[in-house]
Write a protein that binds this DNA or RNA. Structure first.
Lengths: 157, 157
DNA sequence: TATTGTTATACTCTATAACTATA
DNA sequence: TATAGTTATAGAGTATAACAATA
């Protein structure tokens, strides 16, 4: 058994545990000064990253959840004027979800809180380490998602 | 806005999204040949890492959840002979939770699946990059958890 | 007939509150 | 009075199934 690998996996698990706890989310929305639940934040920040209108199905795939989940939260966020739904001109079955100015603002605030946490945590790091982390973590995210898609597509035996 | 930092955070978010989806867990337990839900796996692997009996409260703190959650899953796992509860000789309010051989086996199988995923994803990497990832991710987990503990302890204003 | 999205429903995970027993 | 754990309850988050409208 590879000791180095095991440290990698264990560090990753610790990070996921920390990020996923409810108190962490509470802190994000409090610091951001918004009133949103976790799926709300995920959807808004997904759209902020996309920087253009997205279908419900695309959001669901991006967040890796089922579409009814997205539908419901989109409906609630629309009522709060944080996003708008416009019919896709090319396919009248589909809707394009777009952030309103208020939605952009809310998404940016949430995004900024977590980014600042990382920035603070990395504040004491040498520049070279920060650059390496950025490169390696990006590569890991790519490789792991590609690998898991392959694994998952095989389906149960 | 720091481009490098933003890439780090975004890569991290992608990783968390992938790891958290239900299908990923289904795949883990299927590949491991066990019949456990997500909290079960978390508790068993926590105990495997600890390598010694732990109190309910310690498990809850380690997983960063509330203790009633741990209590319930421990009770179910005990009935399935995957762990045992013995009274703490020094404090009769407390229980020490320990893995049985079957529990160790189940925990090891689950752990091995995810470790193998990482190993496969990193298979094409240069040795130096793998070593750097291990070092930097470990450091990040430490620094971020220390930083967030500080932030969280301040409490709402 | 396949696909996009919605509605309705149910399940999983986790938190909060109230309680018991020991310290 | 404070702490460890449990029981009971409620809520958040997400999946599945059945359906509508369009392609």
């Amino acid at each position: 058994m590879d000791e180095e690998l095991s440290r990698t996996v264990s560090a990753f698990r610790r990070l996921v545990t920390t990020i996923n706890r409810a108190k962490t989310h509470d802190r994000i929305v409090e610091a951001a000064g918004v009133h949103l639940d976790r799926p709300d934040v995920q959807i808004l920040t997904y759209l902020l990253d996309a920087a253009q209108p997205r279908r419900v199905g695309a959001i669901a795939e991006g967040l890796q959840v089922e579409s009814p989940h997205v539908t419901r939260h989109v409906a609630l966020l629309e009522r709060r004027d944080l996003l708008v739904r416009v019919q896709d001109p090319d396919d009248r079955r589909a809707w394009l979800i777009d952030l309103t100015p208020a939605g952009i603002d809310a998404a940016r605030r949430c995004r900024e809180v977590t980014t600042t946490w990382f920035a603070d945590a990395l504040a004491g790091w040498p520049d070279a380490d920060r650059a390496e982390l950025s490169r390696l973590l990006g590569q890991l995210a790519d490789d792991l998602s590609v690998h898991l898609q392959g694994v998952l597509k095989c389906g149960p035996s």
